[in-house]
Amino acid sequence: MSQANRKSRVDLYALVWRLPIILWQMLFFIGPLLFLIAMSFFLVKNYRMIETFDMANWNRILSKDYFWSSYWYTLGMASLATVLATVLAFPASYALAFKVSANTRRWAMFFLIVPFFTSYLVRTFSWYVILAKTGVVNALLAYIGLGPYTMLNTPIGTMVGFLTLVLPLLVLLQTLSLSQIDKNLIEAAHNLGSGRVRTIFNVIVPMAKVGLVVGALFCFILSFGDFVSPYYLGGSTPQTLSILIIDTSKAGQQWPRAAVVAICMMTTLFVIAFAAIAYAYRKPKS
């Protein structure tokens, strides 16, 4: 049997392996998402959903000031978290990729995976206690005569939560892409008289661009959709879109209106994801 023949033939055996994911994703991934779009045109009467085609939910949500203020707040906070996390993670990833031994790097990578398997809820609750008026941080600050500061129920609290969520993943992705860079090229840049900072921005960053942008994109996706930090650490004032979805669907029983908010979020994410990926793979001008 020739290689090409073996690879392109479609038979029972091939289908058995190929079909499960298609069926499963159609039923439980694409199905729900398409239904979400359809649902945004449904109406709720007497706590029952009526399947119809009506623009009422869209008109209502898009004309509300509270929707737009939470839209811009969520977008702003997620962007800020992305920029902050990228800037904060880079020196650490740089150190992991170039300044420590291979063994230390392996251990560091393992420890960066650990947070994924600790409950994000518990970590958030932990910050809640640490950052409180009488919490550990203010108690420590009091020793040097500062504070107490209010950190909970402010955007600072939300940001601490976002960073806790995204930093491990970001350092992991950045380190992976930085350690792929050919060390000889960095050496060459140094030998040709390029200074440290110039080498970072002209050699290292462009070469790790795809990894850096993908990392930042994941930061954005995670903080844009997260409801735990803005709710518990940010006190849900101002509301984010994720909290708006929860309030509208859980308390208000208005699933169709929540669907409108969800679709606006998805659209925004798609636009940003496409822009980021197009940017990451764009040929450098030279």
Binding site: W255, A259, M266
Partner: peptide, 11 residues
């Protein structure tokens, strides 16, 4: 985002 999956799944 999980919150969107959650709403879509529930419905």
């Amino acid at each position: 985002p999980l919150i969107i999956m959650a709403l879509a799944m529930l419905a």
